[in-house]
Amino acid sequence: MQDTADREEMLTVEIWRGREDGALQTYRVPRRESQTVLDVVTWVQRNEEPALAYRFACRVGMCGSCAMQVNGKPRWTCRTHVSRVAENGLLRIEPLANLPRIKDLATDMAPFFEKWQGARGRHEPTRTRHEPMAPVSSESPARKAANAGIECINCAVCYAACDVVGWDENYLGPAALNRAWTLANDERDADKAGLLQAVSQGGGCHSCHSHGSCVEHCPVGLNPTAGIAGLKRMTLAALMKGEL
């Protein structure tokens, strides 16, 4: 009688081990129904490679911590089904591109979050907690523009997908500029001039080539390219009025 394992369908999985000077290592992983790429990585860590370093938390596409390069493209691994990305039963899983590697599949996210600060991607309030909340109409064009970009989960998939980030280490990147765009359209934000100055520095919104890789890869369907184009228009209008 044939052994069950012999009949089982297997995946060939190449996983990056080490830092920048590491190498791909190959594992054989049993194929399962509705299997995600994160399931595959977890199987390897639990059964083959206890020292394998990788990140995840929620497993349901909310926390944005499990993004990796899968067969060359950045993806949120917890919501990426193997059936959609495996090529002839092969998966190549590497750490996110455009970020320093720490170990195996874990990258140093510090540059990504520092650029959020560089784009002034934080709310500057107009009121204190002792004042009543500002009434904001959900129908105003500005609020609609902000809402369109607000569901970012900070996964850095767009940052890894962006060609300009790869070329220019100073470029703030799609996520940080998308955040700046939502704040630029938030009528409760007190420092629009500071924000427009932050996104007009070298490596700011004007460096974007509108390739649209961020739109193509964003797992939650945001359009950072449109937000960056909006920032370009807003900064040019401010420049013409002498406010920049």
Partner: peptide, 9 residues
């Protein structure tokens, strides 16, 4: 801002 000016030009 230099970058915005160059972009406009």
């Amino acid at each position: 801002m230099l970058e915005a000016r160059l972009y406009l030009l």
